[in-house]
């Protein structure tokens, strides 16, 4: 049986990892802080995948991000999806060369759909994760440019992404982002019929029970958290243990 996944999302800008709350950013610590406080060498026992997003639009900071990515990949043996600021094939290829297994695109899906198509054709659907920032409560809308620019209805955007053949959808609720109040499952009402693309739920997880609600949902394939404080220390490992005790459909790793 295919297991569901627990994903840890890291937000990065200019040498620091950040906590985001409704897209307002707070610096938390650098990579050494992360390695130490998250016992990074053993993080692959707790989570199935890592997502790393560079929020810095300053292009001179890209080499610093690539080095950080490579250092992280060297410290954990799990799949890493990287993104933020992917506007060219060169940028995508640099991320893969520095150890990313998948690419995360968001704004490019609105502004450069031809780039997304090119990346799908070059690297395959399984390499492409489309991140969506959405909010409600009525007429669920999607936003680009770090939730700054409205881009129409969530349902229409999902259809568009299906047409672009992306491999996975990362569904992030702007109004729950960093709040720890739990996921907003309303977004799933906008999922078109006969939907085939794996969905990662994001935005709002503060407790293992939130993760478990997502993992039990038939439309959801993975649960993500980007909260640097709620699962600090061995928090991710204990969340996974609790989830497995409640028979969540996660992989059990050998000792």
């Amino acid at each position: 049986m295919l297991k569901k996944r627990l994903i840890f999302t890291l937000l990065y800008k200019n040498g620091s990892f950040l906590l985001s709350r409704n897209f307002r950013l707070q610096r938390v610590g650098d990579i050494q802080w992360l390695f130490k406080n998250y016992h990074f060498e053993t993080i692959s026992d707790a989570i199935d995948e890592l997502i790393v997003l560079n929020l810095d639009d300053d292009e001179t900071k890209i080499p610093g991000f690539l080095n950080t990515l490579e250092e992280m990949v060297g410290h954990c043996m799990i799949p890493v999806a990287a993104g933020g600021q992917i506007r060219s094939v060169e940028m995508a290829s640099a991320l893969l060369a520095h150890g990313a297994d998948k690419l995360v695109v968001n704004t490019a899906c609105f502004e450069q759909p031809e780039l997304v198509e090119e990346l799908v054709s070059r690297y395959g659907s399984q390499c492409m994760v489309a991140s969506i920032d959405w909010t409600g409560p009525d007429n669920l809308k999607v936003f680009s440019h770090s939730a700054a620019q409205e881009q129409g209805l969530l349902h229409d955007h999902l259809k568009r992404l299906e047409g672009l053949n992306v491999g996975e959808i990362y569904l992030n609720a702007i109004h729950r982002d960093g709040t720890g109040q739990g996921y907003d499952f309303d977004a799933l009402n906008a999922v078109p019929n006969d939907w085939k693309v794996p969905i990662i739920m994001a935005g709002g997880a503060g407790h293992s029970s939130h993760l478990s609600q997502a993992l039990e949902h038939p439309l959801i394939d993975a649960a993500a958290t980007a909260n640097l404080f709620n699962f600090v220390g061995k928090g991710l490992a204990s969340a996974r243990r609790e989830l497995l005790q409640c028979e969540a459909p996660l992989a059990k790793f050998d000792d």
């Binding site: 049986m1 295919l2 297991k3 996944r5 199935d48 659907s125 399984q126 996975e168 085939k196 693309v197």
Partner: peptide
């Protein structure tokens, strides 16, 4: 073959 309703790509741990 996705005729049984499975999602594609096949992503994650499987036995």
């Amino acid at each position: 073959d996705s005729s049984s309703g499975i999602r594609i790509p096949h992503v994650g741990f499987n036995n």
